[in-house]
Amino acid sequence: MNIFRFAGDMTHLISILILLLKIYATKSCAGISLKTQELYALVFLTRYLDLFTDYVSLYNSVMKIVFIASSLAIVWCMRRHPLVRRSYDKDLDTFRHQYVVLACFVLALVLHERFTFQEVFWAFSIYLEAVAILPQLVLLQRSGNVDNLTGQYVLFLGAYRGLYIINWIYRYFTEDHFARWIACVSGLIQTALYADFFYYYYLSRIKQDTIMRL
């Protein structure tokens, strides 16, 4: 495992910890999209079907369990926790995620490496992860002013995707293997979504700050 992959995993982990910290400390999930969180839970559950069949390393297995458990915990808090659920911006979180799930599943049925249960769901999880952030980005844009923690959550997720791309480039030149094309193409699309969002979101915030200062 190279340093870029490890740094990518750590920024991914930090983004989830930021979210858990925000929910725990403020007892609020304002500005967080439940739909994005449910999509991530679905992503981890369908991708890590190999948890008990294919062992890679202790690191991988532990991280898989951490990702599944933390994403389920966040969804549980936002749906069931008596205090947290009250702060959920239901009216702003309107992205039609069910169509995205359906589209990704159809795509996985068509584009996969082998037509087996695990491989189809693995491809589905890769496609779904690429677009899972969309409800969150829509919510951020609609709600306007966002607290720092929510902004940092998206920032760290974006960093994770960027580092994974550097990891693939590094692996391509240093190993006899190259990363799977389904993951690479989906990863590039996903990173482009973040880049586009950061470009317009932070640009508009910098403009706003400048106007405020004037």
Partner: peptide, 10 residues
């Protein structure tokens, strides 16, 4: 020639 990796990423 290069071969695809096993699924060793998260």
């Amino acid at each position: 020639h290069k071969e695809e990796t096993t699924k060793d990423e998260l």
